[in-house]
């Protein structure tokens, strides 16, 4: 699904990712943890194709295609989805309208017909309901005036509607109350599928208790410095990142 080899990314000429390697197979869920400022969001942005996140060397292969050559919207149509750490408010743009336009744009790029309006609305309503979001949010502007938790849940609604092949979730669990965290985890689990993969960036192993990750990685100073199973997340939770410095393992 995704194969990142020796990825270097610079922002404003400042190297942030410094030789990152990561391979995620179809159907897998990988967690990425790591200290603030280590480059986790940078990885998400670079994969999604944000301007200014320049791949200076290395390669990113997504289902046999080189991501570096693709525009953000092409990556989306190819099945890549990034749930933003800080979802963006879009004043004046109606949420339902936006979501349908996005879905139809992706479908058009893939040569598929437009979605049926009724079926679309039904699917969105179901996703909203599953995340205990009020339907009135559909009529509001995208993320505008949404509470922090509503914004995060709205990312999961979008993911559920767009049905990506690979979803990168950047701290979608941060700022959620305990019930909302569960809803988000359920939202992710509902989409688990042998043909769909997840990269879940998080600071807390609580989310991982619900998600059962296949691998847990630690990103530090632009590199994956440690990988393991769920027990790695538990160890990080109890000991912090300090132990990495003492017995860091080369990957």
């Amino acid at each position: 699904m995704l194969k990142i080899t020796n990825l270097h990314v610079a922002v404003d000429d400042k190297p942030i990712l410094k030789g990152l390697n990561l391979e995620v197979a179809a159907g897998e869920l990988h967690a990425i943890m790591g200290p603030n400022g280590s480059g986790k969001s940078t990885l998400g942005y670079a994969l999604a194709g944000r301007d200014g996140y320049e791949i200076t060397s290395g390669a990113v292969d997504f289902e046999g295609r080189d991501l570096a050559d693709m525009e953000p919207e092409e990556r989306a149509a190819a099945g890549l989805f990034l749930a933003f750490q800080y979802p963006v408010e879009i004043p004046g743009v109606n949420n339902a309208y936006f979501l349908r336009a996005a879905l139809n744009a992706q479908r058009a790029a893939r040569g598929e017909p437009e979605v049926d309006s009724m079926a679309f609305l039904k699917a969105v309503r179901e996703s909203l309901k599953a995340l205990k979001m009020d339907e009135s949010l559909l009529k509001r502007a995208v993320n505008e005036g949404f509470s922090g938790g509503e914004k995060k849940r709205n990312e999961i609604v979008q993911m559920a509607v767009l049905k990506p092949k690979l979803a990168i979730l950047d701290e979608t669990d941060s700022g959620l109350d305990i019930d909302a965290l569960k809803l988000v985890a359920e939202g992710i689990n509902r989409l688990r599928d042998p043909a769909r993969s997840f990269v879940v960036i998080t600071h807390y192993q609580r989310l991982l208790e619900y998600l059962e990750p296949d691998r847990v990685h630690v990103l530090s100073d632009g590199q994956i410095v440690e990988s393991g199973g769920r027990e790695l997340a538990e160890r990080l939770e109890s000991e912090g990142y300090a132990f990495l410095e003492s017995d860091a393992v080369e990957v």
Partner: peptide
Amino acid sequence: ALFYLRSRGLSAEAAANLLKTGFAAA
């Protein structure tokens, strides 16, 4: 905002149009 919209699949042009429309519609 442009990047957010494009990351959801809208072309650069469609994203700009959506933002302009949203701005002018209020």
